[in-house]
Simulated assay, not measured.
Amino acid sequence: MKNAKSLYHCHRFPAAVIGCAVRWYFRFWLSLRDIEELLFERGVIVSYETVRRGCDKSGVCFAHRVKATRRKPGTTWHLDEVFVTLRGEPYLLWRAVDQHGAELDILLQKRRDKAAAKRAFTRVIASCGEAPRRIVTDQLRSYPAAKAEIHELAHVKHVFVKASARVSKRAENSHQPTRERERRMRGFRDPERTQACLSNFGPIRQHFALKRHLLLASLHRKQLAARFAAWNRFTEATQIPSVF
């Protein structure tokens, strides 16, 4: 039986460099040229286009590994949609989070009708593997119409809230990191690249984004060290690179 090829087969840079570049891009509000400069400071000469290709290829794998090891999703799903503009055209970014704020899935679509809501529901169910006990949405009529046609959600409790209601803030706040990423990239452009980028952005960012205001400094450092150790396993790196 042949051994499986390494994730970095035929790559010029080692796992520590690629893993660090991907983490910087999806964790912080850095551009590709920012990462190029940071790597150059550490003695790694690489173009921003190489960084982009590395983030596109390796980011998918790393995001899947992060999602596979995180805790089981909560039993309450908050769904919300937000408008984004791609080259002057309006799109809807559908996002689902649980009651803990963990992003379950996102889907970029052109419309806001029943078919679009049904695709969003189906995608989240496939990602989580099971249906929730309760769904919280705004008063968009596409949600109940789509829910009625999905067998797994037929008997799930559906709570409707106004956009200004406190219970909807969980979904509303989940859009803020995406808005920051959008501003840093000076707007999204291609629908397929936007979907791929944001699908990787959510899990990787949340892997390191601990609720620091709720933790003691010592506990925060301990948990962050554990997240870095897990990231090294995901990226197959031997250690956290400080200086390359």
Results as ranks from 00 to 15, higher is better:
residue 13 F to I: 09
residue 73 P to A: 06
residue 125 I to D: 02
residue 145 A to Y: 04
residue 96 A to M: 07
residue 93 L to C: 06
residue 242 S to I: 15
residue 219 L to C: 11
residue 204 I to L: 08
residue 153 L to G: 00
residue 148 A to F: 07
residue 178 T to W: 03
residue 110 K to T: 15
residue 42 R to T: 06
residue 52 R to T: 02
residue 80 D to Y: 07
residue 122 T to V: 10
residue 97 V to M: 05
residue 120 A to I: 12
residue 7 L to C: 05
residue 179 R to C: 10
residue 61 C to K: 12
residue 32 L to K: 09
residue 40 F to H: 14
residue 142 S to G: 15
residue 240 I to H: 10
residue 56 D to H: 11
residue 78 H to Y: 14
residue 98 D to I: 12
residue 103 E to K: 02
residue 67 K to Q: 15
residue 209 A to I: 05
residue 193 R to C: 09
residue 109 Q to V: 10
residue 24 W to Q: 03
residue 98 D to C: 02
residue 229 A to T: 12
residue 88 G to E: 07
residue 43 G to E: 03
residue 210 L to A: 10
residue 144 P to Y: 07
residue 126 A to V: 07
residue 50 T to G: 01
residue 102 A to W: 12
residue 31 S to W: 05
residue 146 A to S: 05
residue 222 K to Q: 13
residue 32 L to V: 05
residue 187 G to S: 01
residue 17 V to C: 08
residue 51 V to Y: 00
residue 102 A to C: 04
residue 99 Q to T: 06
residue 235 T to H: 01
residue 154 A to W: 03
residue 136 V to N: 02
residue 200 N to Y: 00
residue 141 R to I: 13
residue 146 A to V: 11
residue 122 T to Y: 02
residue 123 R to F: 05
residue 231 W to Q: 01
residue 53 R to E: 15
residue 91 Y to D: 04
residue 177 P to N: 08
residue 5 K to N: 13
residue 222 K to I: 09
residue 222 K to N: 10
residue 66 V to G: 03
residue 39 L to F: 13
residue 111 R to S: 08
residue 31 S to R: 10
residue 20 C to M: 12
residue 224 L to W: 05
residue 244 F to T: 04
residue 113 D to S: 02
residue 171 A to V: 08
residue 70 R to G: 02
residue 49 E to T: 14
residue 95 R to T: 02
residue 25 Y to D: 04
residue 70 R to P: 04
residue 202 G to H: 08
residue 89 E to F: 11
residue 22 V to N: 02
residue 104 L to C: 03
residue 43 G to D: 08
residue 133 R to A: 08
residue 14 P to G: 12
residue 32 L to R: 04
residue 177 P to Y: 05
residue 149 E to A: 11
residue 96 A to F: 04
residue 228 F to W: 15
residue 167 V to S: 03
residue 150 I to L: 14
residue 173 N to F: 13
residue 89 E to S: 08
residue 37 E to H: 11
residue 152 E to Q: 15
residue 17 V to E: 01
residue 6 S to L: 14
residue 98 D to N: 00
residue 117 A to R: 02
residue 62 F to L: 09
residue 86 L to F: 06
residue 163 A to S: 13
residue 46 V to M: 11
residue 127 S to N: 09
residue 150 I to G: 01
residue 183 R to M: 14
residue 173 N to W: 14
residue 8 Y to V: 08
residue 47 S to W: 08
residue 125 I to C: 01
residue 179 R to P: 07
residue 32 L to A: 09
residue 168 S to V: 04
residue 54 G to V: 02
residue 141 R to F: 08
residue 83 F to C: 14
residue 241 P to G: 06
residue 7 L to I: 13
residue 176 Q to P: 04
residue 237 A to N: 05
residue 224 L to M: 14
residue 136 V to S: 00
residue 90 P to N: 06
residue 175 H to G: 02
residue 113 D to P: 03
residue 66 V to T: 05
residue 152 E to D: 14
residue 238 T to D: 15
residue 52 R to G: 06
residue 11 H to D: 13
residue 150 I to P: 03
